[in-house]
Design a protein around this nucleic acid. Structure first.
Lengths: 247, 247
DNA sequence: CGTGTGTTTGAGATTTCTCAATTTTAGTGG
DNA sequence: CCACTAAAATTGAGAAATCTCAAACACACG
C-alpha cells in the first residue's frame, strides 16, 4: 500500500534519493478515512500535525471575524496539508474534506526530524513552499485585479493542470466535487455570481458541464480570458543541492 | 557597518547561533544604493539572486497580461526580497524601490550553501517563508471578502506592527512613502477609491494624516473595522531544531 | 416519496470603478 | 529663491460589476 503514496509533489524540481522516499513513506501515520464535510483540523488549534493527502479533495480555509470564509486552497492528492500553520502558535487554517478522503497524519516532530536529517528533503520543501507562495500571489492578483470570468477560467485551468500532473496525462475533463458557494469562497465571489459566470462560460462555448463534470472545450480561449501567467518550475537546482551539499 | 544589518526577521522564532549570524552577514555582496523608482529586478528574468533589504521600502509586484499590477508585498528593512521566484525558471515578481533604498545582493548559490550547511538557518527560513504564506492568505481573505475600508485599516495596522518590530517599540505614527495608486495595487482597489477611504478614516477620527505621515488615532476601532486575525509566532520549535538536530 | 442541499433565475441595491476636471505637492532648472 | 512642470491627491458624476434577497427548481438520499 505504501508504495502507492502520491509523492509527485516532492519530486517536482529535485529528485529525492530512494532513502528519502523511504523516510517520507514512514513519516506519516497509517491512513485515516474522512467522510465528506469532515473537519480534519480546525483553525485556532495548536499545530501538532501536518497531513499528507492520499486521496480525495480537501479545502483549506480561513475565517474572517464577520463570519465570511476564504478558501485558500483546493488540495488534491499528494498535497501536504496544513503546513503554513507550523509557524504559528495557533493554527490559521481549517482543513475540511470536500469529498470522502484519505489522509496520513504526520507529527510535526517526524517532519522536523526528516527536514533536519535530509538536505534533499529540506530543499524540496523549500521549493515546494515557495511554489505555494507563488500560487497565492497569482490568485491574489486574480482576485484583486481581474473580473469574475477570468477568475473562474483560471481556476478551471489550474485544476486541469494539477489533475494532469497527478494522473500523468493531459486532462480536459474532470469532476469538480465542489459547490458553487465553495468556488465563490475560493475566488472572492458570491455563489450566485459564480453560477452566472458558469452559464456565461457554457453559452460562449468555452466549457461544457453535466452534473459536476466539467469539460474544457476551448483551452486556448480559456487561457486568454483567464489572464494567467505560465509558471515554469526551476530546472537547475544545483545551487541548492549541489555537490557541496552532498558532503 | 555589517554589524548593523537588520537581521530581526531571521530570529523570530529561532535564535540563530552566532556562527550563523556571521555567515548570514557574509552571504550578501556589499550594499548597493537604489534611487526611488529604481527597478532592482524585473519579472521574467532568470532568478540568480535574492536581496536583503537594508534600508528603505521596496515593493514586490506581479503583472497581469491586461497591464494591471498587483503589489504582493511592501517590504521593509530586514526583509529578504525575491525569494518566491527561486522555485521558477523565470522570476515572477518585479522589485521596485519605493524610496531611496539600500540592498545587499545575495547569489542564490550563497543562499543555498548556507541553507545546506546550517540546520538552524534552514529551519528559520522554513518558518519565515511560511509566515509570508500566512500573510498572503490573510490578505487574500481581505481582498476577496472584506470591503475597502477594512482593507486599508488592515494595511495601516500591519505596517505599524512591522515598523514596530523593526524599531523595537510601539509605532502609532509613521511615514507612508507610497502613493495611493500603489496602495490600490496592493489592496485590489482604485487610487480614487483609496483616496475616498482615507477621507472616511480621517472623518471618523480613526486616523490623521499630514502629507505622507499617518497617525493611528484609535487602534482599537481600527482593529475591529479591519477584521484582522492576530497571528502569534510559534514559541516552541523544538520539533524543528531539537537536540537531535544539533548533532 | 419527502427533505435538504445545491442550483438557477429575477429584480433591485451597493460598492467600486471610470472618466474628467481641479487642486495640491514635489521636483527641477535657472 | 522663484517659476515651471510633472506627479499625486482630490472631488464630482455617472457607469459597471457584483451583491443581496427571494423564489423556484432539481436532484440526491434516506
Amino acid at each position: 500500500m505504501l508504495h502507492t503514496l502520491p509523492l509527485h509533489r516532492f519530486n517536482e524540481s529535485i529528485v529525492l534519493p530512494a532513502a528519502d522516499i523511504e523516510r517520507i513513506q514512514t513519516m506519516g501515520e497509517p491512513p485515516m478515512r474522512l467522510a465528506r464535510h469532515a473537519v480534519l483540523r480546525r483553525e485556532g488549534e495548536s499545530p501538532r500535525y501536518i497531513y499528507l493527502l492520499l486521496d480525495g479533495w480537501v479545502a483549506s480555509s480561513v475565517l474572517l471575524p464577520g463570519g465570511d470564509r476564504q478558501i485558500t486552497k483546493f488540495h488534491l492528492p499528494g498535497d501536504l496539508l496544513g503546513t503554513p500553520s507550523m509557524c504559528l502558535e495557533r493554527t490559521a487554517d481549517t482543513l475540511t474534506a470536500l469529498t470522502a478522503a484519505s489522509v496520513s497524519r504526520v507529527p510535526l516532530a517526524a517532519f522536523g526530524d526528516l527536514f533536519q536529517r535530509s538536505p534533499h528533503f529540506a530543499a524540496a520543501m523549500l521549493l515546494s513552499i515557495q511554489r505555494e507562495r507563488v500560487a497565492l500571489m497569482d490568485r491574489l492578483a486574480a482576485v484583486g485585479r481581474t473580473p469574475a470570468l477570468a477568475r473562474v477560467a483560471a481556476l478551471l485551468l489550474d485544476l486541469a493542470e494539477r489533475l494532469g500532473a497527478l494522473g500523468g496525462g493531459e486532462v480536459s475533463e474532470f469532476e469538480l466535487p465542489v459547490t458553487q458557494e465553495q468556488i465563490g469562497d475560493h475566488l472572492g465571489l458570491t455563489a450566485v455570481h459564480v453560477n452566472r459566470i458558469f452559464r456565461q462560460l457554457v453559452e460562449t462555448g468555452l466549457v461544457a458541464r453535466h452534473r459536476q463534470r466539467v469539460t474544457l472545450l476551448d483551452r486556448a480561449r480559456l487561457k486568454s480570458v483567464s489572464g494567467r501567467q505560465e509558471r515554469v518550475p526551476v530546472q537547475d537546482v544545483s545551487w541548492l543541492v549541489g555537490a557541496r551539499a552532498e558532503a
